[in-house]
Design a protein around this nucleic acid. Structure first.
Length: 699
DNA sequence: GTGGATGAG
DNA sequence: CATTCTCATCCAC
């Protein structure tokens, strides 16, 4: 994670007030508060949130003792992030464990290879933000963009208080915030909203972070890291050139990665200013029209890209890397292990995957390491159903041959091979829907996944005790003491076995609402090149109980052999005693980190929820000021709406908001991408939602 | 739809 | 440089 975060940097230095003539004047012009509603391209107010050393914070919440020691989060042989105690000792991100221990012998390490807790907390943050305003776009696990333009406009219309005339937090390159506030009222209000949201994230989730406030995503992101940790910074339009000029290289511009930087360098471009001044026509020759214009705009601090609600993930994957893996048996076992956890996660998500992908990375002297190869295939619907239904063991057993078939498409196992990574991935995730019985019925619609209903009902019970007050009024954010929080953290033990991913995505996000069809998919990737006739019955007798003999017979002979091999059977029986396992490659084992945390052991027993915060938070959620800044479609009765369960309300609000850009679409400047994928989804869902609206009309 | 390239943290 | 463990978009096929 966080590849590029804080270099404790800003090579002070050389800020020469370089002039760039090509910067449009309009950039520096203050739009001011007086914008008629008829002008669609009014400046937006965009927030960027960036949690401080996210993984480390999550671990420190799980075990407060870690707050006082230098803490590093370890994945394999590197420290992916560390807390600020460790940073004071010179640790940086992505430092090798060896170097880190050298710099800081007392460093406490927590293994962070399992992302479960980070992913859960990450979605809690996103959902918290969404509960205030649905236009939230995730960037990785620890960052969120938010378009609060409408919130700001509403406050602008309502508030006359004097405190809105100052900025909260820092203002980039500005000594006195007071003076400028009235000139940039909308940004000032944005800084208030950012401060309130950071406070909410802290009081409700216990996390600190930075925020940037600016007129587009690029600038909000760039400015948010100006003061760290746990601070916020607003960028005024008049300082856009400053902040762009301060970037030490083009590589620092979000959107310019290694490859693009190399190509730019080949054109003689190294600094942001180089790119600003480079003729667009030459750039077009190199990158093509739209990318060239985009690059040039980025260098100028111009970014029209909308904040696109992220919604639920479009794919779920699990992977593991290792020094070397060279036997099919090890591959099979590793895939089995990865699949087991992935299938569980998929089940908790509630959706049904239509596609499976296997990815590998090979070791080679020339390629050193790098470059992944993958093969994918459709998931036969009967397997998909087992995943969604929670028949995890069955599902894994049936997926395994699929995976091995894909593996053999990439790797000729009769020849020596060396893998350094395996990834399994589910994609093309479909929402399951009630097949029969009143499709127009609201309950059937929300019974997208039967498992979600449990969560739904438990939440709605609590909901009735808290009254969620009305909509469309500006609110003060509640501030609970952290002391109380910590008390709760320690006393509440929880087991909510179903709570993680489905609860996190407790409402349906943006998804296509294609009705699941019942027709069988061909397991094309299994059957190709196979010779079903060859399998004899004596062989199928030996099959483990949960393998369908019919399926088995369809498999290629080599796969059948693998399935009947001792290693595989051992896997199925989940025997850890591996008498039959020979040829254990020592290399893989030695990868296991030797210096695990021993002094500060906070790990919970396997099988129990390792996240005690959960119950507390579920209750807290109910008191969120639910999107009080949202608009309802005109035909929705707020009273009826307010009586709906929390998740239903959130889902509806999410969907209304998502329709907006499509319906309004006065200025969508990103026609290419969004039209084919995201917006099509939104449109498809739109028709669904519209048909739902009738249930909320005033009578 | 598939698979590689490239981007993000 | 990538290294980790993800997730997303773009595009030739």
């Amino acid at each position: 994670m966080d590849n590029s975060e804080d270099e404790l940097e800003e090579n002070e230095a050389v800020w020469k007030n370089s002039f760039v003539d090509s910067v449009p004047l309009s950039l520096a012009a203050a739009p001011g508060p007086s914008l008629s509603k008829t002008s669609p391209p009014a400046d937006r107010v965009i927030l960027h949130f960036d949690l401080d050393c996210f993984y480390a914070q999550v671990e420190m919440i799980r075990n407060p003792a870690l707050r006082e020691v230098p803490l590093g989060i370890q994945q394999k042989y590197i420290i992916v992030t560390c807390n600020y105690v460790a940073r004071e000792q010179g640790l940086t991100k992505l430092m090798s464990v060896t170097d880190a221990k050298e710099k800081c012998p007392q460093l406490v390490l927590v293994n962070g290879e399992d992302l479960t807790h980070y992913r859960e907390m990450s979605y809690k943050v996103t959902e918290l933000l969404i509960s205030y305003c649905p236009l939230v776009e995730r960037l990785g696990f620890d960052e969120n963009f938010m378009d609060v333009t409408e919130m700001v406009e509403r406050r602008l219309a309502q508030t006359l208080e004097s405190n809105t005339f100052s900025f909260k937090g820092h203002v980039y390159n500005q000594r006195s915030a007071e003076v400028k506030a009235s000139d940039y009222l909308r940004l000032a209000l944005g800084s208030h909203i950012a401060a309130e949201l950071r406070e909410a994230i802290y009081t409700k989730l216990g996390l600190t972070g930075c925020a940037g406030i600016a007129t587009n995503k690029l600038l909000a992101k760039l400015v948010s890291g100006t003061f760290k940790p746990n601070q916020q910074t607003t960028l005024l339009p008049e300082n856009i050139r400053d902040i762009m000029g301060h970037l030490s290289s083009l590589r620092k511009v979000p959107g310019v990665g290694h490859q693009t930087a190399k190509r730019l360098q080949a054109l003689g471009l190294v600094t942001v200013k180089d790119l600003q001044l480079f003729p667009l026509t030459d750039l077009v020759r190199e990158f093509g029209g739209p990318p060239a214009q985009r690059l040039k705009n980025l260098a100028l601090g111009v970014d029209d890209s909308p904040v696109t609600p992220t919604g639920a993930p479009q794919s779920l994957s699990d992977e593991d890397s290792f020094k070397k893996m060279s036997s099919t048996k090890d591959v099979l076992e590793k895939i089995h292990q990865l699949l087991s956890s992935l299938v569980e996660r998929m089940h908790r998500d509630g959706r049904q995957p239509q596609t499976f992908r296997l990815t590998i990375r090979r070791f080679s002297a020339t390629n050193k390491w790098f470059s992944r190869e993958s093969r994918q295939c459709p998931i036969p619907s009967h397997i998909g159903q087992k995943i969604a239904a929670g028949s995890s063991d069955d599902a894994v057993v049936q997926l395994l041959p699929l995976a091995m078939k894909l593996f053999h498409k990439m790797v000729d196992s009769s020849i020596t091979f060396h893998l350094t990574l395996i990834n399994v991935c589910f994609s093309n995730l479909q929402t399951r829907r009630a097949v029969s019985g009143g499709k127009g019925c609201i309950t059937s619609f929300f019974r997208a996944s039967p498992r979600k209903i449990q969560i739904l009902s438990s939440q709605s019970q609590g909901d009735s005790s808290h009254s969620v007050d009305g909509h469309c009024t500006d609110h003060q954010f509640s501030t609970h003491g952290m002391a109380a929080q910590h008390l709760s953290l320690k006393t509440v033990t929880t087991k909510s076995p179903r709570s993680s991913e489905a609860a996190l995505h407790g409402f349906k996000w943006k998804q296509s609402t294609v009705v699941a069809e019942e027709e069988n998919q061909k397991a094309s990737c299994c059957t190709t090149g196979s010779d079903p006739g060859e399998t004899n019955d004596t062989v199928t007798h030996q099959l483990p109980a949960n393998i369908d003999p019919k399926v088995f017979k369809l498999l290629p002979e080599e796969i059948q052999k693998e399935l009947l091999s001792p290693a595989y059977v051992n896997c199925l029986l989940s025997t850890s005693d591996s008498q039959n396992i020979k040829d254990v490659t020592a290399a893989a084992n030695e990868l296991e980190p030797s210096d695990r945390v021993s002094a500060v052991n906070h790990q919970q027993p396997a099988g129990t929820s390792a996240f005690p915060v959960e119950n507390v938070l579920e209750e807290e959620k109910l008191s969120f000021p639910q999107s009080s800044d949202c608009e309802f479609p005109g035909n929705v009765d707020p009273k009826v709406f307010s009586e709906l369960p929390l998740d239903v309300r959130m889902e509806l609000m999410s969907e209304w908001k998502q329709q907006k850009p499509v319906l309004k679409a006065p200025f969508s400047r990103k026609p290419v991408r969004s039209l084919i994928t995201k917006e099509r989804n939104a449109l498809g869902k739109g028709s669904q939602t519209n048909s739902l609206l009738k249930y909320f009309k005033r009578s």
